[in-house]
Write a protein that binds this DNA or RNA. Structure first.
Lengths: 140, 140
DNA sequence: GTTGGTGCAAATAGTTTGCACAGTT
DNA sequence: AACTGTGCAAACTATTTGCACCAAC
């Protein structure tokens, strides 16, 4: 995810408007490594904008996703999570507590390299690597 | 997924019963490389068992998944897909038509190796690798 | 003033569950 | 006969949408 100022410029250029709600969401996401769900973000932003609606959060996340500013992670079968870090990287997902963490392991190949390799058959947009299991707290 | 006869033995051993519906589902899944959703399986099995319910399909898939006979794939944000091939392997997911295919690329590391490497922090049960993008039919 | 955003409420869709009856063992 | 499975219907939950009013531009 870019600097807030860059996103603001980008939004304006595309005819999107900048609202306090959106600014709050941008701020909440920047440097956020917790992989929040839409609901998580909604609950947090409520502290700053007590009358914001879930719909606004939801639609803003969609917009940011469509612009490639954030990734929508579909690791958790129960809900989507959002990640402002759009660089290629892997995740761990704990089946017990649902926590998603960044994983140091590198797949050894980027989405771009992957795309070059198999472009005849499939056009790769992103390349996702997940380790699913139990985190240190949950494995007894 | 094991041979049907082995699954039957395993089910009986665990106190689960063998019904024509379940046998039909076992047969439909064996050697199935199409990564069907529960709905897909339901529609297929209806041709053989016209009065089977979605609930039965759903519960049987859960049981097979819990026994490790099949993998529940959560690549498609819209629905779960099922794969009788439980060996480590990667998938492609087409954002446009939703098709899931097996991918030749090997992550270069198995879930077991992965687990050994990072066992201090996280207990890896499975290791999932997905290329998300557009299939040959959908990329214009 | 024009256009897009917000927030409410309702619809959608996949998934999951409770329960009575039927089938397997 | 005992106990699990089946099938129906309903509940649940995350997600998505329609629309009237509001705010950014």
């Amino acid at each position: 995810m870019n600097q807030t100022s860059e996103i603001v410029t980008r939004f304006r250029k595309l005819g999107f408007k900048i609202t306090p709600q959106r600014l709050g969401i941008f701020k909440l996401l920047r440097n956020n490594h917790s992989h929040p769900s839409a609901e998580d973000i909604y609950r947090e932003i409520l502290k700053v904008h007590p009358s914001i609606s879930f719909t606004t959060v939801y639609k803003t996340l969609q917009t940011l996703r469509d612009l490639g500013e954030i990734n929508e992670l579909r690791i958790d079968p129960e809900r989507a999570h959002y990640d402002p870090n759009v660089r290629d990287h892997a995740h761990t997902f704990c089946k017990s507590c649902g926590k998603i963490s960044d994983l140091e392991y590198q797949p050894g190949i980027s989405a771009k390299e992957m795309d070059n390799r198999m472009s005849a058959d499939f056009e790769v947009h992103s390349f996702q690597v997940h380790a699913v299991g139990l985190c240190s707290q949950c494995k007894t």
